[in-house]
Design a protein around this nucleic acid. Structure first.
Lengths: 133, 133
DNA sequence: TTGTATGCAAAATGTTTGCAGACTG
DNA sequence: CAGTCTGCAAACATTTTGCATACAA
């Protein structure tokens, strides 16, 4: 994620809070919620407000740079949209999230939408699982 | 949904609020949220509290009698789990929900979970769509 | 009669917003 | 310098909870 390019392209000011938040987002390989991201952010700059994290997350989601998920109840969780589309297995015993991708399933979804006269805007497939005994 | 049997089986008291809420749930063919259900409930008995609706919904979801969905942001929405499993197409222009089912997709999900060493507890597939021009 | 269920209001949770001041371009 | 961003606190939306009372079994 090239931070400066990203802001320039979208007519956004490259402020210090944004630099820090984008740095944290670039360095994440999990699916944290806003509070967890804020924790990581204030470790770098303790002055940054949770509201700013929310505002930035919203902005980035609108620009398609982040994906927002609602796994089960609780706060929304985020991941960067810079890697190709995939779906999620959620281990309900640990909360861990495993990414997977099935072209076959993607194809079937297209077909279903088409059959109903729609085109797909986005979709979400979550499989809640438990380790097999 | 046989209301009395349902309560008896689960060790629940058949109170007036529960009777009314279950009646409303039985007569629904859409995917309303708690506030909407409460509106329908107080049309029958104006004294029933929103908190009771929430408590009852939670109970029924835990018993597997209701399914709770989180389509996009906003409040959770419910549907009765008395008809066979299916997934949802959500028309983002109207908010309408269309149910569908694909055995092929179900099968592929099983396979994916198994390949990762898990068994499926539940899953959720939502396709957000727009009418094709 | 005993414990479960209810209504009400308050609390909890997650997120957004108004505002006055700070900072970027 | 103009207009965007920020921190803060308050507002908001949804859901849960504590408590005294009502009610089903």
């Amino acid at each position: 994620m090239d931070i400066e390019a990203l802001c320039a392209e979208n007519g956004l000011r490259l402020t210090k809070p944004r630099r820090v938040i984008l740095q944290v987002l670039a360095g994440m390989d999990d699916h944290p919620d806003a509070a967890e991201l804020h924790r990581r952010v204030i470790e770098i700059d303790p002055g940054i407000a949770l509201a700013t994290v929310y505002r930035t997350l919203r902005l980035l989601e609108e620009k398609g740079i982040l994906e927002k998920h609602r796994f089960g109840d609780g706060p929304a969780r985020f991941e960067s949209a810079d890697h190709p589309h995939h779906d999620h297995l959620i281990n309900i015993e640990t909360g861990d999230v495993i990414e997977f991708r099935s072209d076959e399933i993607e194809r079937l979804q297209e077909e279903i939408a088409r059959r109903h006269g729609f085109s797909i805007v986005s979709h979400r497939l979550e499989i809640y699982v438990r380790p097999k005994k």
